[in-house]
């Protein structure tokens, strides 16, 4: 026998704050963005490639890396996805897009947000530029997003 009951939906959450040291390599990467609006990679002379985001050790040949090079700021959109649904944890109101951006001077790609563009206008291979935060705080969102280079 089932009595009618008003259904109850319980709201809950897990909230986990934490801090971590960026380390010397990522610290310089973030500081260059915050202070000089420069995006820096680090070159592996043995593999002849530029790692971006930079890291202290080459993941391929395990060389210690120290040769900093500026990359970008312009880059090419090599892939993207458009998010159509809303979740509380998402950084933007849908529809919005994530893109893989290959900055000039490196073969690596950076996953970041795309902005300043209608998602339906996004095209593979389009040239993009970073839009920086006005009040940088020292993390990857000091680049707000990448937007199409005006005039193509």
């Amino acid at each position: 026998m089932l009595d009618h009951v008003e259904p109850v939906v319980l709201s809950s959450k897990l909230e986990i704050p934490y801090n971590y040291y960026a380390g010397p390599i990522a610290e310089r990467f973030y500081n260059e963005i915050a202070e000089n609006r420069r995006i820096m990679g680090i070159r592996c002379p043995k593999c002849d490639r530029v790692l971006m985001p930079p890291r202290g050790t080459c993941g391929r040949c395990f060389s210690d890396l120290s040769e900093w090079v500026e990359v970008g700021p312009l880059g090419t959109l090599i892939n993207y996805t458009i998010v159509h649904y809303r979740e509380p944890i998402q950084p933007m109101e849908p529809p919005f897009a994530y893109g893989l951006v290959r900055l000039d001077g490196t073969k690596e790609a950076l996953l970041h947000l795309l902005g300043g563009v209608d998602p339906s206008e996004i095209k593979l291979g389009m040239r993009v530029q970073p839009v920086f935060r006005e009040d940088p705080v020292g993390n990857i969102l000091d680049i707000k997003y990448f937007s199409p280079v005006s005039g193509g």
Partner: peptide, 11 residues
């Protein structure tokens, strides 16, 4: 430099 992060998982 310290990166501060807060993972919020509402459900």
């Amino acid at each position: 430099l310290t990166i501060a992060y807060r993972a919020v998982l509402p459900f």
